[in-house]
Design a protein around this nucleic acid. Sequence first.
DNA 1: ATCGTGACGAACG
DNA 2: CCGTTCGCCACGA
Length: 121
Amino acid sequence: MQPRNAPDPPPTPTFYDRVYAFVREVPRGSVVTYGQVALELGAPSAARAVGYALHFLPKAAEQDVPWWRVINASGAISFKGRGPEADRQRSMLEQEGIVFDAAGHTDLRRFRWWPPATLDR
DNA sequence: ATCGTGACGAACG
DNA sequence: CCGTTCGCCACGA
């Protein structure tokens, strides 16, 4: 039984929540890949789910979660490939200094960001 | 509990 | 380099 006023019910953070939390840490001018996020979250092969999570990013969170800094393993913008959304994402990244080649790929070796501590887990 | 979905990704040919 | 195939996953209906 709870002592008296239980601080807060253990709200199991969903995978999506963890995705948002991680992406929120990606600094301006750098990027991460879907697969990378999945890996950091302990689910090596859940890259697809990461993309799904961002697809359903709450409108209200678009300000805090830099979703545009997440691209695919090829260093290109996924976003279902095309669409005005993809162009917008690219613009936002270029605005931060990310450079894309003629083929629409960016150099991950140069712009990819890795979280400070990879020691946990 | 089962099924369809999709901002992924590695493997092929 | 490019399109296709197939595996993998969390989530909602």
